[in-house]
Amino acid sequence: MATPTRTADEITRTEPPDEIQAVPVRHPGRWIAAAVVAVLIVALAHSVATNPRFEWGVVGDYLFSSRILKGLVVTIELTVVAMAIGIILGVVLALMRMSESALLSGASWVYIWLLRGTPVLVQILFWNFIAALYPTVGLGIPFGPSFIHLDANSLITPFVAAMLALGLNEGAYMSEIVRAGIISVEEGQTDAAQALGMARLQTMRRVVLPQAMRAIIPPTGYETISMLKTTSLVAFIGLADLLYSAQLIYSVNYKTIPLLITASIWYLAVTSVLSVGQYYIERHYGRGRAREAEPTLLERLRAGLFPRHADVKPLPEPPKMPEDHR
């Protein structure tokens, strides 16, 4: 039996049904858990505020002291330089790893195996004592004469040792991140670029890497934040970074806890700034993917605080990729 054809007018009812107004389900478990956490927070806050041994006054005295700020600058410099070395080296190692030459990809593999398989603290110590292994550093023809001789002890200062150790170590991690990013770009992109006559390097630089960045940026941000904290290991080779500067002060005045808090406040401040920066970089490399531009942090904050009044664009739909059509 065939159903008679109906038009849209016949199907649409004149009066839409009432909007649903149901009594919401109660969640007693959630309320109990929230109460427990609230009590814990209050207890902790009370203790932090009233325990005199925190010595917040001392924290305040040292927070902007010149020695701490100098240490902070060293920490930031070390983070920036080590990450720069790590990212450049990471791209090179990733491209080597994907090379058709077995020697290039094998060398990259061994490098990554070696530097990821040993603790970074050991590597920092190694570079610090490199002069014991190679007392002089020369520049010249391999296996032939060398022209410039330098004393490794004066060339490899603690800062240089820390920079090399952290940077070279980071390169091993970054190369895996870069490689995963490159692999995440569809092969069709390379096909299209090559079919247009673009050379392999052009294809990599203009088409593949910008798209790989979407996959590379978030873990790189994580690595940068992690690096900022890892630099504190250089205290072992006596480089006056943020942590070691604090240690130097408390080794004299015994204000251990306040100075560790001082250092922690600066670490937290810098990682927070880095997180905000990461958000905006991710937003930049996400362009063209989402249908609407993602809201800025401020817009999101406003939307969260005043959900009804804020004039905020809706959150973007998940990006629709050509594969969906298959």
Partner: peptide, 30 residues
């Protein structure tokens, strides 16, 4: 290859470029 145009089943447009940027990329670079 620059003298032979190719169009693919799955379009393979460069998603990080606008329509016009997709079109002018190869003329400018190649």
């Amino acid at each position: 290859r620059a003298e032979v145009g190719m169009v693919f089943q799955r379009f393979n447009l460069f998603p990080h470029m606008t329509a016009i940027q997709n079109v002018i990329e190869a003329p400018i670079r190649v």
